[in-house]
């Protein structure tokens, strides 16, 4: 059990669940300090057709210090990818777009940047079926599902950030 003791929901010796402390862990109030620092000054492309969701994702990433560009369609996303001076540190990609699918966008990105390490992609979708998840794993891209909280979003994206400047 030792490996579980450092995380959330720690048990004390009396056997009571440390509810109050776990709650605090889930909703830390950061008072002006970014929760993580790895996102500071990274360039991130958010591809999402639902404007409210797009603003939420972009907003959180900006709060974490990232430089965010957003696109509502696959075509816009690809033109941003191709016109950028250097590859984005990360592309957050919705699968359901009004023009082409997120998978098509991913194919387009891979034409320009064949290596996942060069231009990492994390899929963020309301589509929860296992087929999509497997497909994402096969293409070495991240897979997050909506709805997602601010903290899970940050935690889910950071492992995929492109290393280096």
């Amino acid at each position: 059990m030792a490996q579980f003791h450092s995380g959330l929901g720690e048990f004390d010796r009396g056997g009571r669940t440390a509810v109050a402390r776990a709650d605090q862990v889930r909703h830390p109030v950061s008072h002006g300090v970014p929760t993580v620092d790895v996102l500071i000054d990274t360039s991130i492309l958010v591809v999402e057709d639902d404007l409210a969701v797009q603003e939420f994702v972009a907003g959180v990433l900006r709060l974490e210090g990232a430089i965010v560009v957003a696109a509502s369609t696959g075509a816009d996303a690809l033109s941003l990818v191709n016109s950028a001076a250097s590859p984005y540190h990360l592309v957050v990609l919705d699968l359901c777009l009004p023009d082409i699918t997120g998978w098509d966008v991913l194919d387009g990105i891979r034409l320009t940047y064949p290596s996942p390490a060069e231009c990492p992609v994390v899929i963020l979708t309301a589509d929860v079926d296992d087929e999509s998840r497997r497909r994402a794993a096969g293409l070495s891209v991240g897979f997050l599902t909506k709805p997602i909280g601010a903290r899970e979003l940050v935690a889910g994206l950071t492992p995929f950030l492109r290393q280096g400047s």
Binding site: V60, L63, A150
Partner: peptide, 18 residues
Amino acid sequence: SPISVIHGYATTALEYAG
């Protein structure tokens, strides 16, 4: 979709209130 928005903004407000 709307649940994503609600959950997203609510957690953002909570996480980054300050």
